[in-house]
Design a protein around this nucleic acid. Structure first.
Ligand code: ZN
Ligand code: ZN
Ligand code: ZN
Ligand code: ZN
Lengths: 164, 164
DNA sequence: TGAAAGTTGTTATACTATAACATAACAACC
DNA sequence: GGTTGTTATGTTATAGTATAACAACTTTCA
């Protein structure tokens, strides 16, 4: 049985997710002369360790378990770099971070967070953004950034008995 | 010149906002046998002290300046009560709380947060909720709660010079 | 090489929130 | 009125999240 606390239940080879994310990040950083140092790359890999958002201090623990002897600022700096380059997102309602599923272009993302398995799926539905921009504009508000975090049950968890 | 750090620039008698909020809260709590104690009422008034979200520790400071000699749990308990009864909302991206502008009915609210004056306007546009529910459903996700926090410039602040 | 810019190390501290347990106030019933 | 169960508050300690400030090191490039 797959470990749903560790990776997306839908069976897939998650190592490929990580590899692809790092490759994509490397490409993007090269493009803009951003330096994806070893530490930053390692933090990116840890954020991509699963499809569940991860907290800064959990990242720190994992780094330490690998022999790294650092302090919180190191992790937060790496996260800041990754955020600045659009490689990860911050989930405000969880104080946690998750890999961006289509980095490169500027976007803020819309996140579906499963209350049961805690996995996050990133959407970027222009219809949603449009509805918000339009609704804001109707009262004269000029929107620049949207935080959209939706809770509910993912399709897999809906199929399970309630008490499971 | 109005103090934009203290209340909504659009001129209005903010004491009426506070009074109305407390009256409405009293009514709602009576309806459901919720006890709006003095402390809870005072916290509600402080949350309604302006149209800017306020942090729990700022509330604590203000209570202390009034002679109250309490600790964080007291404030967080009052906030929890007010949240549970739909009298205030929590702004996740600010770790702060703001009065609900139409308490009573169950709703999660959509918040427009001005980057300049920090005032918050609550929207509840069904079109936005619908767009999100629909978009979620398209990938099989059953949404139960939405966190929507939009940053930008309110109409008043748009009219000001950029450097002001 | 040497200065400038960028990155990481290190220590301390600020800010946000809750656990755990004690006491007090309230409500309802006998 | 006293008893009792329930809710609310007080109190202390601690957990969890994030940043300030400054020192040391690395890379870049003139
Ligand atoms: Zn994966
Ligand atoms: Zn799930
Ligand atoms: Zn007002
Ligand atoms: Zn404004």
């Amino acid at each position: 049985m797959p470990d749903i606390t560790d990776q997306r239940f839908t069976p897939h080879d998650h190592r490929r997710c990580i590899k692809a994310a790092v490759a994509e990040a490397t490409r993007i950083c090269n493009e803009r002369n951003g330096r994806l140092t070893e530490q930053r790359k390692r933090v990116l890999e840890l954020v991509w360790g699963s499809h569940q958002p991860i907290g800064a201090y959990t990242i720190l623990e994992q780094l330490r378990s690998e022999g790294f002897n650092g302090a919180p600022p190191t992790v937060y700096r790496a996260l800041e770099f990754l955020l600045d380059h659009g490689l990860i997102h911050r989930i405000e309602s969880l104080n946690a971070y998750t890999g961006c599923s289509h980095p490169g272009d500027e976007h803020t993302g819309q996140f579906l967070i499963c209350s049961r398995c805690h996995e996050v799926t990133e959407l970027d539905d222009p219809a949603v953004s449009r509805a918000i921009t339009h609704s804001s504009a109707s009262i004269g508000f000029a929107a620049t950034h949207q935080v959209i975090e939706i809770r509910g049950l993912c399709s897999h968890c809906q199929a399970l008995p309630h008490d499971q």
